Amino acid sequence: MSAGFADIDWARPWLAPIETRGRRWQAAALNGYADYLAALNEDALQAALVTGRGERLAFIAQEELPAGASYEGHIAQTGSVPTRHNLHDFFNGSMWFAYPRIKAALNARQAQQIDALGIGPTRGGVRDALTLFDENAVLFACADASLADALRAFDWRTLFVVERAAWGARCEARIFGHALLEKLVAPYRACTGHAWIVDVPADYFSLDDAARRALIDDRVAQRLNTELLDSRTFAPLPVLGVPGWWDANASSDFYDDTTVFRPGRRSR
């Protein structure tokens, strides 16, 4: 079963950072589950990445997760990521290669919380925030504090219309959350990510994609290792509002839909 792999449109701009590897994985996934896992593990062997406690990254079939074992804890202890033959886990695997330090930092914090609190009916505030990041984060790289302020204040007109030329020059968005990437295989206007603001130097925007990702990977991972986390750390970001990501947003009228571009905290 292809599980929607054929529906990935690599022309979508938010997929550009993972396209090269993603196309190979897509072809393997369309051939079957075994070929798909083999492709992931071949790349993992070459990349020599590690999970939250320094274990070498690998991918296993979901049914190989031992009964009673926690998903995050198993990854931290063994390095093996239980992986299903579906889009959700396809994009999760992709993020291990695009942002390996962030993924390892998330895994380390998740495992730490499990060790301290165990597995209960609820995750608790820190694990909830870590899961939210893992599933739905958008990394908002920004060299202009006024743009970060506009995002936090829900000032969509400033962020997307007045300062439209700033995108790619003083700010940009990079999707990290694998559940969000899965949703965007079939994009819809209200699709919203949880933006994590990353302060970057002005010369960040002169770097190539690999260098930008490496800089963000390092800075965000360091913060995840030390910061107190809760859901208030994030700012909502309707992702199809990002200039250049959706043809309809070339018209400023696109941002008049207050069911998507809500006034939020700005009106308080």
Rank of each mutant, 00 (worst) to 15 (best):
T233I: 01
A235G: 07
A166D: 15
D247G: 00
R266D: 09
R266W: 11
E163Y: 01
V185K: 04
Q222K: 11
I216H: 04
W167L: 13
N225C: 11
S252K: 09
R189M: 13
F205V: 00
A190I: 04
I175M: 01
V220E: 02
K183N: 09
A235R: 01
G168A: 01
D230N: 11
S252C: 07
A221F: 08
A211P: 08
V260I: 14
V260S: 12
W245F: 12
D257K: 04
R213M: 11
S231E: 13
W246N: 13
G168E: 05
V220R: 02
I197S: 03
A169S: 13
D257N: 12
A210K: 05
N225Q: 12
L228H: 13
C171G: 07
T258R: 14
Y255C: 04
S251K: 11
S252V: 09
L229G: 02
R232C: 06
A166E: 15
Y188A: 14
L207D: 06
A210L: 08
F234K: 03
R212E: 01
D217T: 10
V185E: 05
V198G: 03
V162W: 07
D217V: 10
P236S: 10
I197W: 00
D247F: 08
D217A: 07
H178T: 02
V260Q: 10
N225K: 08
D247H: 11
P201C: 07
A173K: 06
I175V: 13
L215D: 07
A235V: 02
D199V: 03
D199N: 12
A248K: 08
A186D: 09
R223I: 04
V220A: 04
L237K: 04
P201N: 03
D230A: 02
P236Q: 05
E163F: 06
L228V: 08
V242E: 02
H178S: 01
A169G: 09
P243E: 06
L240K: 00
L180V: 08
P243W: 04
R213L: 14
A210Q: 12
C191Y: 05
V239K: 00
A214H: 05
D256Y: 05
E227I: 13
I197A: 02
D209Q: 06
L224C: 09
L240I: 03
W167V: 14
S252T: 12
G193S: 06
S252M: 10
H178C: 05
E163P: 00
G264P: 07
G241R: 07
S206L: 11
N225L: 11
D257H: 05
V162E: 15
E172G: 13
D257G: 00
V200Y: 06
P243V: 04
R174L: 14
A186V: 10
R164C: 14
V185L: 09
A186P: 01
A173Y: 06
V185W: 02
S206T: 11
L237M: 10
A248Y: 03
P187H: 11
A195E: 02
V185R: 03
E182S: 04
R265C: 09
S206R: 13
S206V: 00
D203I: 02
